[in-house]
């Protein structure tokens, strides 16, 4: 399936349960919200009650965490079926998941486990991506994950791996600049090398998030404010790349909503004025 580029729709926030009521009450200046797809694999109740109202006012993007596209187990079609039903109900602008594996057979780690950067993994992912996209009848955007180890088996760098996957499938990526930063620190490479190596047309979305620094290594906890270095990487990338859909991702240790809005406004302040699609001033 050929992937078409998504238009620039601005700056989004991750939609999390604790903010539902405040969003409806205050109608914040957010261009779009990203939901965690699996949180809506339920029949009803609060999640759908609030999403139905929020999606009347904001475009929605779907981001999955459990597809396990890199797994060598058989493709989980019952998962894909739930995803498809949710897609039909939400009508998202686009959908994404992670370039990783999470489950194997009956075991689910609920973590985003890295793939080895090998020829074998490339052909495996190429095949799986085609099957998934055919089944869903739409492109699937893949996010780079943070990693804490390098495999002996890897034959290329992560950015070479992503670029080659794009060459073979035309798939697009959701680049999480924090994840790149985390992996760069843990594996001692320059994050700019990664960011500059991915073909421009292969990038569909950006995630910005925070992490926890343990000195010897850092962990992608998504529970802290975005660090200065990640902001700088984003600023440089944005200047070079031009308008790109960008989102602040917070998954834990939720601050008051206005703090996330301040981060979103900071992201807006780092890009040229010409990016603006809504005049929120």
């Amino acid at each position: 399936m050929s992937n078409t580029s998504h238009p620039f729709v601005g700056f989004g926030l991750g939609l999390r349960t604790c903010y539902f009521e405040e969003i409806l009450a205050t109608q914040p200046k957010v261009d779009w919200f990203e939901i965690i797809s699996e949180n809506y694999f339920v029949d009803g109740g609060k999640p759908w009650h609030y999403l139905a109202q929020i999606k009347e006012q904001y475009p929605i993007v779907m981001h999955g965490v459990s597809m396990s596209i890199g797994s060598t187990s058989e493709i989980n079609f019952s998962y894909l079926d739930s995803l498809k039903k949710t897609i039909n109900r939400v009508d998202p602008l686009w959908i994404s998941d992670h370039l990783c594996f999470s489950s194997l057979g009956d075991f689910n780690s609920h973590d985003l486990l890295p793939m080895p950067y090998t020829e074998e993994a490339l052909s495996h992912l190429t095949e799986r991506l085609n099957i998934v996209q055919d089944y869903l009848q739409r492109p699937l955007i893949l996010e780079n994950v943070s990693s804490y180890l390098t495999y002996q088996a890897s034959q290329m760098s992560e950015w070479e791996f992503l670029s080659e996957l794009h060459n073979r499938t035309q798939c697009q990526f959701l680049l999480d600049i924090n994840n790149i930063y985390v992996s760069a620190r843990n594996h001692d490479f320059a994050p700019e090398t990664f960011l500059n190596a991915i073909p421009e047309k292969a990038i569909a979305q950006i995630h910005l998030a925070g992490h926890s620094d343990f000195g010897s290594h850092i962990i992608d906890t998504h529970d802290q404010p975005i660090c200065d270095h990640v902001w700088q990487l984003f600023k440089d990338f944005a200047k070079k790349r031009g308008p790109i859909n960008t989102m602040i991702e917070r998954d834990d240790n939720f601050p008051p909503f206005k703090e996330l809005m301040a981060e979103l406004d900071h992201a807006r302040s780092l890009v040229p004025k010409s990016w603006s699609i809504h005049d929120f001033t």
Binding site: D111, L113, L149, T150, Y151, Q152, A153, N186, S216
Partner: peptide, 18 residues
């Protein structure tokens, strides 16, 4: 499966993070 890398973390510690 884990490559030895320069830096503070040994392969065992990298596995333990997961």
């Amino acid at each position: 499966h884990i490559a030895a890398q320069e830096g503070a973390l040994a392969p065992t510690q990298r596995a333990e993070i997961y």
